[in-house]
Simulated scan of single mutants.
Amino acid sequence: MVEDARFEDGGERPLHLKALDAEDLGVFSALIQDAVVPVAEISYDAGKRRFAMLLNRFRWEDVEAAQARGRAVERVQTVLLFDDVIKARSMGVDGRDTDTIVSVLSLAFVAGEDGTGRVDITLAGDGAIALDVETIDATLKDVTRPYAAPSHKVPTHEV
């Protein structure tokens, strides 16, 4: 008998995922919510049509296991990469201020014509990054071992 993968199945292994449609981006959005990233670790290469961010991702998939075992909640450095990016622009983010750290709230896709569209990366504090894409072609990959979250707390949001 074949079973679907469960969210808990990824708790102990590094992520290496591919997004090819809006539904996949929704999964990425949930996984990178509350990630923090120095502005210096955000780049766009127009020649290669590639946008990348090196995130310090909160490991949402591991929270229950960490709490059940009495160990610290964790973060991990993760690359978020978009290919086939036609144009990248930002609001509320000064690329020259490389000491600034931003927090990712969500990813969303706004469809255009013939498979094109825009990926919106919403940041805390009214910041945003918009990527005009030819198609959704994104990768999310953990690139370090998890480490104890410096705050030792699960991120929370006021409603």
Rank of each mutant, 00 (worst) to 15 (best):
A35C: 13
V27D: 03
G26P: 01
F58Y: 14
I42F: 02
D34F: 12
Y44S: 02
I32C: 07
L55G: 01
F51E: 06
R57E: 14
F28I: 02
V36Y: 01
A30G: 12
A46Y: 08
K48C: 07
V36W: 03
G47V: 05
A52R: 13
F28H: 06
M53P: 13
A52S: 15
G26K: 08
Q33F: 01
F28Q: 01
G26Q: 09
V27W: 07
R49N: 10
L31V: 04
A30F: 05
E23I: 04
A40Q: 10
Q33N: 12
L31K: 01
I32M: 06
G26A: 07
M53T: 02
A40E: 14
I32P: 03
V39I: 02
F58N: 11
Y44H: 11
A35F: 04
V27R: 09
R57C: 10
E41V: 01
M53L: 14
M53H: 00
Y44C: 06
V37W: 02
G26H: 03
P38C: 07
Y44K: 07
D34H: 13
D34E: 15
L25C: 01
G26D: 09
A40H: 03
I42A: 05
F58S: 09
E23W: 02
D24R: 11
S29H: 07
L31D: 02
I42Y: 07
V36C: 14
V36G: 00
D34T: 13
S43K: 08
A52D: 09
R57D: 12
I32T: 13
A35M: 07
D45S: 08
I32D: 04
P38V: 00
L25K: 04
G26S: 10
L55V: 09
